[in-house]
Write a protein that binds this DNA or RNA. Structure first.
Lengths: 155, 155
DNA sequence: TTGGGTGCAAAGGCTTTGCATGTGA
DNA sequence: TCACATGCAAAGCCTTTGCACCCAA
């Protein structure tokens, strides 16, 4: 996973941009954070622990940069907050988008991988001539714990 | 489809709310507009043609109301704009969410229906215990016209 | 009549931008 | 050295809110 950092540094150099401690710390925060899906404000708070002088504007500028470099994904998980997560690279160095399960009760976010969509994408290309290159899937519902809770309430 | 209007009026009365010309005009705009997927600002401009005195705040308040009454869906199609569309009701009076195809070249938005997801949702419930109640699917790519264009450019 | 609705302007969030200063290469 | 980055504060958007007036029921 420090792979991500090397990749970032390399991309910065390739684009004539500078490797700064702020940029590295922001990437770090996104990598380290267990639950991921951080908002700009959350990244700001995390980085401030190590560097109290950092400005929120730098967070926003770096997020934008990471996004342009395809290192992070921007997420809208339905709570009106904009969130970001580190992209998972596959062998071909393409971002492998996973899907999100969003619990309507506790707001927990789970992820899963699936290739059922490939099939769907083929069908769409055949029938509508639309060539799919990326997708975003969100499923809303209740996680196992909350579903359990609901069930016991009903009885 | 004037069905939607009757439904709206009924819901308003049931909730002790008033049927006003502004509310009806806003719903109308969402129903009539061929391409649908309007932003608040676009709805404002459309309604202003008939009623130049209407305020943007009324648009926002009505959008929120329509959303709470489950008559419209809020969409985030990836362009950073918040859009709204009339919900399509099925026989059981539930909103039937369709999926969106977003052309990365011309920004055209196509929709399609599919029940392939039902299968996926069952699998998720079985393996993860997550009970899915709603979903949102966006596919990004190139529509037939733009894909054609791309192809001819390559040659 | 009267409580909810509307228009207007002001206030709120979040994000971006301008500018002087700082710093990696 | 010097172009790019940063921090700060101001500016920009979009959306919500407070309030006096209005109008469906």
């Amino acid at each position: 996973m420090p792979d991500n950092q090397e990749r970032f540094k390399k991309l910065l150099r390739e684009n004539g941009l500078k490797v700064t401690s702020q940029r590295l710390m922001i990437l770090e925060a996104l990598i380290k954070r267990p639950d991921k899906h951080l908002t700009a404000e959350e990244i700001y708070e995390l980085v401030k622990v190590e560097n109290p002088d950092i400005g929120l504007a730098t967070i926003y500028r770096t997020i934008q940069l990471l996004s342009e470099l395809n290192l992070i994904d921007k997420l809208n998980l339905g709570d009106g907050q904009v969130r970001y997560e580190i992209g998972q690279l596959d062998k071909d160095h393409n971002i492998h988008h996973h899907h999100h399960l969003i619990c309507l009760n506790c707001d927990k976010i789970l992820t899963f991988e699936d290739d059922l969509l490939d099939q769907l994408e083929d069908t769409i290309e055949e029938t509508m001539g639309f060539r799919v290159v990326d997708h975003e899937v969100k499923l809303f519902g209740y996680c196992s714990e909350c579903a359990e809770e609901e069930k016991s309430k009903e009885n």
